[in-house]
Design a protein around this nucleic acid. Structure first.
Length: 207
DNA sequence: TGGGCGATGGGCT
DNA sequence: GCCCATCGCCCAC
């Protein structure tokens, strides 16, 4: 792969509207350094959560608890939380006192492949990081990362490479969120093999 | 190839 | 005690 830019993205990068940022994150490299080594991948799928008006967002109605507190802080902060037995990772957006976030749903493995393989324990590389709970396990992201910033190690974002075509559609797994369930706030790199829940995406009909 | 469902743990009322 | 921004197995087709 050519034209990889692995320089850390500055805080300025995160100062854009959440829906724009959700698209800008596609193609960026997410890197996690741990005692076991470093692993990284290109972000290929994101979802925007725009509280307090978004019923699907944890910050809906400006709900402010110990868990959601970080969403009220500066853009570029790391919001991790546990869903069932899995850790999910979000990029805080929207600026101070405006609780918005972007969920990272899938990545394309780039470096630290042996480490990711070991952590996931299955042979098929396409199943290592094609879901929000899977990619955190592959990269070694945990609740210890809560409240850190994506602008510095051990968990940071770098410029990466520009994606080809971007698609959008409804978000996943939020069926009981009223009209918000239909908002097309899920973004992905068109035809990328590492997208999660591919069964929910209409297949492009070959000519 | 994909839908259905149970496991499982933390946050919140 | 209930609610999930999930995962992976099982089984039908």
């Amino acid at each position: 792969m050519n034209n990889i830019n692995d320089s850390i993205l500055p805080a300025d990068f995160y100062q854009q509207p959440t829906l724009e940022l959700a698209k800008s994150l596609l193609g960026c490299l997410i890197v996690k350094e741990t005692a076991d080594g470093t692993a990284s991948g290109f972000i290929v799928e994101t979802e925007a959560y725009i509280g307090p008006g978004d019923r699907a967002a944890h910050s809906f109605g400006n709900r402010r608890t110990k868990r959601t507190e970080v969403m009220f802080g500066n853009s570029s902060l790391i919001y991790t939380y546990v869903m069932h037995t899995h850790t999910l990772v979000n990029v805080v957006s929207g600026g101070p006192e405006n609780p918005e976030a972007i969920l990272i749903r899938a990545i394309e493995p780039y470096s630290g492949l042996e480490l990711m393989h070991e952590r996931r324990g299955i042979a098929d590389i396409r199943k290592w990081t094609d879901g929000p709970g899977k990619l955190t396990k592959a990269l070694g992201i945990t609740m210890d990362d809560y409240g850190r910033s994506f602008t510095a190690p051990p968990l940071y974002l770098a410029a990466g490479k520009k994606p080809g075509h971007i698609s959008s559609g409804p978000r996943v797994g939020i069926d009981n969120s009223g009209e918000a369930k239909d908002y097309p706030w899920r973004f992905w790199v068109t035809d990328n093999p590492f997208i999660s829940r591919k069964n929910l995406i209409k297949k492009r009909v070959p000519k």
